[in-house]
Amino acid sequence: MPDNLLKDPYNIIITGVGGQGNVMASKLLGNMLVGRGYYVTIGETFGASQRGGSVMSHMRISGKSIWSPQIPEHKADVIIAIEPVEGIRVLARYGNLTVKLLCNSHPVYPSSVIRGEAYYPSPEEIETSVRNMAPDTTFIDATGEAVSLGNPILAGVVLLGTLCGTGALPLNRKDFHESIANRLENQQVELNMKAFDTGFRLLKN
């Protein structure tokens, strides 16, 4: 097993709302890492996902063993939030001052907010308070990028690209291509690669 992780286990949480491609993103990332010879454990919470609920994938990456499919509180190393408020929720429970947060800036409003019963913070409020808690935060309009590529579901892949762009994980474009090549149709592979590259470049600039 390779041992070039920044920390072992390295803990990643991918969070969002049902229908945003959360589970797909964690699967893709997990397969890339298993392909590289790591132990990967993923815990998914998606029972109510199809009904607009919060979705969360806990990922443990290790050179030594399988770990608990639930990350202990405040022990996340990276949080990928496909939805900003879900990012806040996860940050609060699993984050810490050094966590790396990659946050899609596109909101999905909970039904309580659509009804007018609850308040959804403005992008500025989110950004200020999140940065205060997690200085290493990057906001990305992943949904915007995904929509311009033709499908909002690609937001997760855009963020995966960004994650790989940060160099936090020993992964590159080739790993991503391998993980999707034998699972998707050619046309889809191309589209996903575009989304990945878009995300990868975002942080470079």
């Binding site: 405040h74 806040i88 309580s112």
Partner: peptide
């Protein structure tokens, strides 16, 4: 589990900034 200050601030953050995502239909 981590710094107490972080946990306290985090709690406040969730209360003020993270509206509950209740069960609804698609």
């Amino acid at each position: 589990t981590g710094s107490e200050r972080f946990a306290e601030e985090a709690m406040l953050l969730v209360e003020t900034m993270a509206p509950v995502r209740g069960l609804t239909m698609c």
